[in-house]
């Protein structure tokens, strides 16, 4: 088990940009001997310390807990101090491109303007809302099961990887984003918290809220702490339904239509799901796609929709778990 240390030659293409002096970004090509012990942050340090002192990036703790050093390697979001070089080489080969998390927000080299990230963070009331006894004689009693209900959302280190990998954040500047949603869940799931109403109002808002998530799972994929933000987003969907706060819109109807289909057939009726979500008029714009799907056998005519052979059991399950009224 005393593994020896191995070395290989790697070519790095490094994104360079200085807001003060550069009109456009450019790339430096640097060749380096990389050892099997190194992580991506070691490479950033070596670029700065051995090649060009002006190369800049954020970093602090160097062991995956402060969240400062998120960048992209060959387009994949990574926390630089936690990503082994050997894994990167195995994944992408011996030519690696180092870029900031979001090139359009680049200020200098790997450093981006994260203002939008922190603004969204603050929007979800990211603190326990409860009267704080300043001189307590005892603690709240919280059972281990209640403590586990946070589902490790408290492990989020605000590195921004999920936020800047989210396709909705990219095109919708109102969208609060997966990191802030995970934070909202962290407090909504806390038995000590009294701020659920406020947070639900924020995360249920059309455009900004959880209903604009496209369920691509990019946030879960990229998270270096396995916080799994989309799991928390789904839990927030449920909280909204359970409280009866769901607004009647495409996204919520999509969820409800899904449930209706399962209740009726025990299977998903894709065609009816779109009609239910979009309404009888809205559905017309999907006709060209529907025709293609029909040709491929992905959707069937309503009277041909099959039923699950365990439909009775499924309907019992649906009945015992459903809360929505429309």
């Amino acid at each position: 088990m005393d593994n020896s240390i191995t070395t290989q030659t790697i070519t790095f293409k490094v994104f360079r940009f200085n807001q003060e002096t550069d009109y456009l970004p450019y790339y430096n090509t640097i060749e380096m001997e990389v050892t099997s012990e190194e992580v991506v942050l070691d490479i950033l340090n070596r670029i700065k310390w051995e090649h060009d002192g002006s190369f800049s990036y954020r970093r602090s703790c160097r062991h995956g807990i402060c969240g400062a050093c998120a960048i992209k390697v060959n387009g994949k979001g990574v926390l630089a101090c936690k990503e082994r070089m050997n894994d990167m080489i195995e994944l992408f080969g011996k030519e690696l491109t180092l870029e900031p998390l979001s090139t359009k927000r680049a200020i200098k080299d790997m450093i981006i303007d994260k203002e939008d990230f922190w603004v969204k963070h603050e929007e979800v009331e990211p603190f326990l809302i409860s009267h704080v006894d300043e001189h307590p004689e005892d603690e709240h009693i919280v059972t281990p099961q209640e403590a586990e209900a946070l589902l490790d959302s408290d492990l989020c280190i605000q590195c921004g990887l999920c936020h800047y990998s989210c396709p909705v954040v990219e095109i919708n500047e109102d969208y609060i984003g997966p990191a802030a949603f995970a934070k909202a869940f962290r407090f909504n799931a806390d038995v000590r918290d009294e701020g659920v109403d406020k947070r639900i109002e924020v995360i249920n808002a059309p455009g900004a809220g959880v209903w604009d998530c496209v369920k691509c799972f990019e946030c879960a994929e990229v998270c270096p702490k396995e916080v799994n933000p989309i799991e928390k987003i789904t839990k927030l969907h449920n909280q909204v339904f359970e409280r009866g706060d769901a607004l009647n819109n495409v996204a919520t109807r999509h969820a409800v239509g899904f449930a209706h289909s399962i209740k009726k057939h025990g299977l998903l009726d894709e065609g009816e799901l779109v009609r239910y979500s979009e309404g009888n008029i809205g559905v017309i714009k999907h006709v060209p796609v529907a025709l293609k799907m029909f040709k491929k056998g992905k959707i069937v005519l309503p009277w041909n929709m099959p039923k699950s052979d365990k439909l009775d059991e499924i309907q019992k399950l649906v009945k015992s778990s459903s809360t929505v009224k429309f």
Partner: peptide, 12 residues
């Protein structure tokens, strides 16, 4: 206990 009252997520 004060840190706990402010929201710290201690193991139980």
């Amino acid at each position: 206990r004060w840190a706990e009252r402010m929201g710290a997520a201690f193991s139980r």
